[in-house]
């Protein structure tokens, strides 16, 4: 063993110098990187193509309007709308719960319809209008559904709340909030592990019965 810090060094590489080990690490890292690189990029690299050609595979221009503000973005095809909102636009009100379309914490409105932003690719909402929880209030004036969730204690930990509220607003707009039973069915895509369901239903019923514009 040439190195004193040999506790993780394989026995059969005893004659490697520090320098050659660094080279080995560099090379193997590079090989791993190539192995993880998408086929078109590797092909582009192998053929010595201009990197700009490879870039075409990487990012796609996306123009969207989020909460009334227009954005011109450059987006990887694999980025979900949820990640785009949170990571690129710093709109962290929309929550990542399960990230597999099972919990509803990521619910936003696309052109007025509620969807799971975790299963929506950012490139597929090009040209569309997105509303997130940050877009409901008018300045300091909370949306009636936000007020009602506060009044009825429609949450405990609050993690599912942005998704619950976006879904609740859509539930009323769709005309599916005419009874507690109907609300339960049409809010079933939003899971609350604290179990605030009865209060969430009360909050929605009050807004619905109050007849306020949502």
């Amino acid at each position: 063993m040439t190195s004193k810090n040999s506790c993780i060094e394989p026995e059969n590489e005893g004659n490697l110098t520090d320098a050659t080990r660094r080279d080995f690490l560099k090379q193997s890292t590079l090989l791993t990187a190539i192995a993880l690189t998408p086929a078109p990029l590797v092909k582009a690299a192998e053929n010595g193509w201009d990197e700009k050609i490879a870039d075409v595979y990487e990012k796609v221009p996306v123009n969207i309007e989020v909460n009334g503000v227009k954005h011109q973005l450059s987006v990887e095809p694999r980025a979900t709308l949820l990640d785009l909102l949170r990571e690129q636009l710093d709109l962290t009100g929309t929550k990542k719960g399960c990230d597999y379309g099972q919990c509803g914490a990521c619910t936003v409105h696309v052109d007025g319809h509620r969807v799971n932003s975790c299963l929506t690719l950012g490139v597929m909402v090009n040209g569309k209008k997105i509303t997130t929880i940050e877009g409901l209030a008018k300045g300091d004036q909370l949306h009636p559904m936000q007020e009602s969730f506060l009044k009825h204690d429609g949450f405990q930990c609050g993690y599912c709340t942005p998704g619950q509220i976006m879904s609740a607003v859509a539930c009323i707009r769709e005309g599916h909030a005419n009874s507690a039973t109907e609300i339960r069915e049409y809010m079933s895509g939003n899971i609350c592990r604290c179990g605030a369901y009865p209060n969430i239903i009360s909050a929605i019923q009050e807004v619905k019965e109050g007849g306020q514009e949502v």
Binding site: R78, Y100, G101, L119, V123
Partner: peptide, 26 residues
């Protein structure tokens, strides 16, 4: 092909399927 993506994106995240190219038919 991708249309709504509700199942395909899920499967791609989990590595069950890993297409080189998606054709959005919307």
């Amino acid at each position: 092909i991708i249309a709504g993506g509700t199942n395909l994106v899920d499967l791609m995240k989990r590595g069950v399927t890993a297409p080189d190219k998606l054709v959005d038919i919307n």
